[in-house]
Design a protein around this nucleic acid. Structure first.
Lengths: 128, 128
DNA sequence: AGAATACCTACTAAAATAGTAGGATTAATA
DNA sequence: TATTAATCCTACTATTTTAGTAGGTATTCT
């Protein structure tokens, strides 16, 4: 059981931005500070932007800012965006194609609730 | 974020055995009932046996039984055995090789605790 | 002796992951 | 206007993980 490193990097980058909020910051800086490849960061931020977590500015003094105050961004949002929906098992995602009433699906459904509760219970502002 | 299907199958197989406890049951029956390949089940049970969750008997009337009463087997045990240790991110497993004090690791460490708590809070006997 | 069972090793096809590469676009500044 | 520094975009690729399959051996009851 693992979350992708993409989710890890995404979260770290967002925390980094949050520390700087509400000033703009460019990816080269983040890249240096966090020790991640610039090219890879660009990809990650495309995703973050597409999902309205950050706002960008192009050109010479370009860069990124958080789209909202870090008080209103939850760790869960970031992680689900980077990693896909939280669903520890197929059946927990909604439908279980078993004919039998599969007793073990209880485990996955309960677990999913707990993970979401935990992850959406953490604000970005708490991580600064 | 997903657990492997191996963990899912393992759990289902264990629930199946638990329903039968303390009688012995062979893999062909389980295979039919749960709709999983016999050959694959054999592999899974090798792992379960190696980790002392089940006890086997060879030969004509062979089969498997739970090694303990289902009251004393936790969903978490089975899942960690089939899927590897619960560690949603590298850094949550113990060591984080970041020089900086990585603020986001808090998330993974807290999450790990919650997942373990949830999964070890469920007894096999509750799933029958 | 035969049949049914667990046990073991090795292989493989497909999917997901974690990036890299090379360029196009935009906007401030010299 | 030319340069430069930033975001933006598409495509590719090597590696790893996953989810099984295949074929055979060992054991034990009848």
């Amino acid at each position: 059981m693992k979350f992708s490193t993409r989710a890890g990097y995404g979260l770290r980058a967002m925390v980094n931005l949050a520390k700087n909020h509400p000033r703009r910051k460019n990816l080269q800086e983040i890249s240096k500070e966090e020790g991640m490849s610039l090219k890879y960061l660009e990809q990650l931020f495309r995703i973050l932007k597409k999902n309205n977590l950050v706002v960008s500015r192009k050109g010479r003094v370009g860069g990124y800012v958080l789209a909202k105050n870090p008080k209103f961004i939850r760790a869960g949002e970031i992680i689900e965006i980077m990693d896909g929906p939280i669903a520890p098992m197929e059946c927990a995602g909604g439908r279980c194609d078993m004919k039998c009433s599969c007793a073990s699906s209880v485990v996955w459904i309960k677990l999913r609730q707990q993970i979401k509760k935990t992850l959406y219970g953490i604000k970005l502002s708490e991580l600064i």
